[in-house]
Design a protein around this nucleic acid. Sequence first.
RNA 1: GCGCCCGUAGCUCAACAGGAUAGAGCAACGGACUUCUAAUCCGUAGGUUGAGGGUUCGACUCCCCCCGGGCGCGCCA
Length: 554
Amino acid sequence: MSRLITEHIRKIINSVLCQVYPEWAEEISYTVDPTRERKHGDFATNLAFTLSKKLRKSPHQIAEELVRELSKVFEEHTRLEVAGRGFINVFVEDNFFEPFLEEVLQEGNEYGKIGIGNGERVQVEFVSVNPTGPLHVGHGKCAAFGDSLAKVLKCAGYNVEKEYYINDAGTQIDMLGMSLEVRYRELLGMQAEIPSGGYYGDYLIDVARTLLTEKGDALLEIPEEERNALFRQYAVEKILSSIRKDLEDFRVTFDNWFSERTLYDNGEVEGALERLREQRHTFEKDGALWLETTRWGDDKDRVLVRENGSPTYFTSDIAYHWNKWKRGFKRVIDVWGADHHGYIPRMRASMHALGLPENFLDIYIVQFVTLLRKGQPERMSTRQGEFVPLRNLIDEVGTDVARYYFLMRDPATHLEFDIEEAKKHSMDNPVYYVQYAHARIASVFREARKKGLDPEAPAAVQCVFRGELEKELVKKTVYYPEIVRKSAQQGQPYMICNYLHDVAGAFHAFYNHHRILDESDPELTASRVRYCLATRTVLRNGLSLLGITAPQTM
RNA sequence: GCGCCCGUAGCUCAACAGGAUAGAGCAACGGACUUCUAAUCCGUAGGUUGAGGGUUCGACUCCCCCCGGGCGCGCCA
């Protein structure tokens, strides 16, 4: 388990706090952050400001008192000062970082794992695209986000399961089956028209073709009900397997694929309705059964069972989440496309209606992607058949680039993805910037081995920085566990991207100004190789959280 | 009309639970390869954080109002 460097400082401060202001030590909240500017030291805390509210004394005065006490407790190689209106700045000697640097090297691939999740069971459900057509680029953004979020949470100590919910029931699937049948008829030379609301995409022609070769040309003679089921099932099966293939090539995997139909087959939809009735949150009106979602802030109440007796999609979704709860998840995360955000209030309301804890369901909304090509935006919509399949993007820019671009921003914001820019192998491309740093380290290590050095061997050297660039690099490197924590707490993998870009920048600067392998100075070489080793570890581990490769050469 | 998201340098975005003089990259301009990969580095320039109020020691960050953009408001899924 990796240590957080600011936690280390915080512990020291807390111990003093307990002595000086025991009455506030518990409840006071304050920050310990690395500073932006060199003259403010290495870390700074706003403790005096937050205390000043409680103590009704000036921050500056409090800071001075605290510094007097803190100086007694801090190690010798730290210096404290009061700055500005009451900031406490902490200056540390180089070897302050030594144990943290050593930890990176010791933990290797495990570095960055922290325990804030306490092994709590969390489920991340994402993509869950209807098996009615291929994945498009927007789905790709959801896929990259959900997959990476799950990895980050796992790294933070949660027990995470990834799940794909297959909407294999309902009218859309009926439409799909009918559309496939139309394509099948066309192949047999018959006239047929795709029903309105059906699926026009060419992919169904391909499916019809394999259906024809696999099952022959006599399918239309089967009685209607059985035939419909056959076309439905066949279409879902084929499309789902192509979705799986796309996801696999995008390095997105799931622990579980959950079928909506099983909820009906196992009576769980009925069970959920039963539960809602027990909780007395349903009522009948106009021949339908309703859930009083307005009670928890929804705009209007929602229908659970239609006048014709069939449950709505909403109902099976409630049953699905009830099922998640019964499976023992303490917290579930849903990742939805932006077009579903109007669905949030009723979903939250239904969780209340079931009697589930307030924080059980977490919903992330992923905004759309605008794909640009030479300034020309390309829209996507599954129905019209004019969409950009994720497959095309993977083929064109590759999985690494696509994933990075999807992950580098808050998913709640619109993303402009310029394909031409992304294809450039240049500094326009942040993916390569990060990967290049990793490849450079690999290259240095190859060179070292040629010279008979083993860069991976433990070296008996201490942190003594020759210049700010070395210190900056090490400081950033050992900050990695904090980034994992923040990223997990806020559910934001983009923080990993920003951080890695930052580390890569620190490395490139270091690399350009310092000779790493210096035969005239073995000790210097040894310590610089250590910095490289630590940097490589962090780059590699961070990239793996993003599902992006860390290349040896470029 | 109502609800949610967004608005920061010319462009794309940061700013980590309210902290110090708002930072990067791209684009522009000027420099650095007899050396471990120049897909790199160093420097210059670029801002009333959409507008206006409020909260306080302190606001890009929180509250109110307005402007602009996106999305959603089915007994569809």
